[in-house]
Amino acid sequence: MALDQSFAGRSYPPTEPYEVGREKIREFAEAIGDANPAYTDPAAARRLGHPDVIAPPTFVFAITYRAAEQVIRDPGLGLDYSRVVHGDQRFAYTRPVHAGDRLAVTSTIESVRSMAGNEIVDVRGDVHDEKGEHVVTAFTKLVARKQEPATGSEGDAR
């Protein structure tokens, strides 16, 4: 099934704000085994110049991916969600996410294309804080594979 190319460039309305909690950051830092005190100790974070504990660099993916999911599940786009794997991921930060942030994500489909039978969708998630200031942008490449997964060599199926 061919994807609807007209979706390229399409933006979706910003998500309801996600409120970043200290304990959620702690849970994430513990899950990746990272004992950096900037993630759990407000005083340590403040010594580095941050207003509160900060989140590890990839923490924000949980927020941006939830927003991207709404986009790629848009029935009009025609993506076979069951065949989607995560191809690439990139983040560009203006500042780190910190506890107390209320973050909204605006998702944009950057490109839609077919390559060697795979369908590739690039989604950009621009993350802004309550004041409307940019925090981070997530660039997520999703690949719907041609056939049923068979080799297990294609990375992280989602």
């Binding site: 660099p57 560009a92 930060y93």
Partner: peptide, 25 residues
């Protein structure tokens, strides 16, 4: 992806030193 960047954040000290980070799976 989260584990790999720890080599960078542990080296730099402040995780906020990372201004861009990308990988291919």
């Amino acid at each position: 992806m989260a584990e790999a960047v720890r080599v960078v954040t542990d080296w730099a000290g402040d995780p906020a030193a990372v201004v861009e980070y990308g990988v291919r799976f």
